[in-house]
Amino acid sequence: MSNELTVGIIGLYTIVYVIVFFVQKSQIDQTKEINASMKSFMDIFKIDEVKKYVEMRNERVMEDASKMMMNNQKFKEMSDHLIKTTTEPLQEFYKKTINDRHIELLNVVSQVIISLEPDEREKFIKEVLPNNQQALMDMLIDHEKNKP
């Protein structure tokens, strides 16, 4: 009976193995079908072509909008008015406040530079005030010419 039991167990394992084999084969076939359908779907829609189309469409919309804005006299008038009403107050503020402050600071800097020894002046300007070097050097030359 031990032999019959062993043969029965082996037979049962074989049947289970065959069932598992067919289940796995059907899953593999389904996966292949899904991959094939996805590939055909991706072939229909070429992503790069769609991106190019979207970019071209956006460019055309922007060109149309810019043409409409440039050709529209009312838009020009509104933009001119807006520019005038926003820039003029800023210019006035600059002229009244910032310009006076810059002149005041420039006078202080020029007095500091003039108070330095003549051989230290150029070095100080180059090291401390490199962005204003040309203007300050011109000022220094004018001071040297007007010096009594």
Rank of each mutant, 00 (worst) to 15 (best):
L116P: 00
P118I: 08
L105D: 02
A135K: 11
H81F: 11
P148S: 09
K123V: 13
N58Y: 01
K76V: 05
K32A: 13
E144K: 10
S110T: 09
I103C: 04
N131C: 11
H143L: 12
E117H: 08
Y17P: 14
F21I: 13
S26F: 12
I98C: 01
I98E: 03
S79T: 08
M137E: 13
T97I: 10
K145L: 11
M38I: 10
E59P: 00
Y53N: 03
L105I: 06
D119V: 12
V109T: 11
L116R: 04
M69V: 06
I103N: 06
R101S: 07
H102P: 01
H81G: 09
N58W: 00
D80H: 01
M137T: 10
E55A: 01
R57E: 06
L106F: 08
Q24V: 15
L129V: 08
V112K: 04
Y17V: 13
D100Y: 07
N72T: 01
T86M: 09
L5R: 15
I141L: 11
L12S: 15
P148L: 10
M1L: 15
L136Q: 08
V61P: 02
I9T: 13
P89N: 00
E104L: 06
N72M: 01
Q134E: 12
Q30N: 13
K25C: 09
E59Y: 02
M62N: 07
V112D: 00
H81Q: 09
T6E: 15
P148I: 09
M42W: 04
V18S: 13
I98V: 10
F21S: 14
I125H: 04
T31P: 07
D43E: 03
L90P: 05
E120H: 08
D119E: 10
I28T: 14
T14M: 14
M78W: 04
I103F: 07
F41R: 05
I44Y: 07
R60M: 01
V18L: 15
I19C: 13
P130G: 10
S115T: 07
Y13M: 14
L105C: 04
I125K: 02
E88R: 12
L12G: 15
M68A: 12
I113N: 01
E144V: 12
K145N: 11
E4P: 12
Y13D: 14
L82E: 00
I47E: 03
I114M: 03
L129Q: 04
F124C: 06
Q73P: 09
I28E: 10
L105M: 06
M69W: 06
Q111H: 05
D138P: 06
E144D: 14
E120D: 12
Q24R: 15
E144W: 08
M68Q: 00
K39R: 07
P130W: 02
L5I: 15
D119C: 07
A36Y: 05
Q24P: 08
M42F: 06
T87D: 03
M70R: 05
P130T: 07
I47N: 04
M69P: 01
N107E: 11
R60T: 05
K145H: 08
F21Y: 15
E4I: 13
K67V: 00
L116W: 02
M69H: 02
M56A: 03
T31M: 12
E144A: 12
I125S: 03
V50C: 00
K39L: 08
M137V: 11
F41H: 03
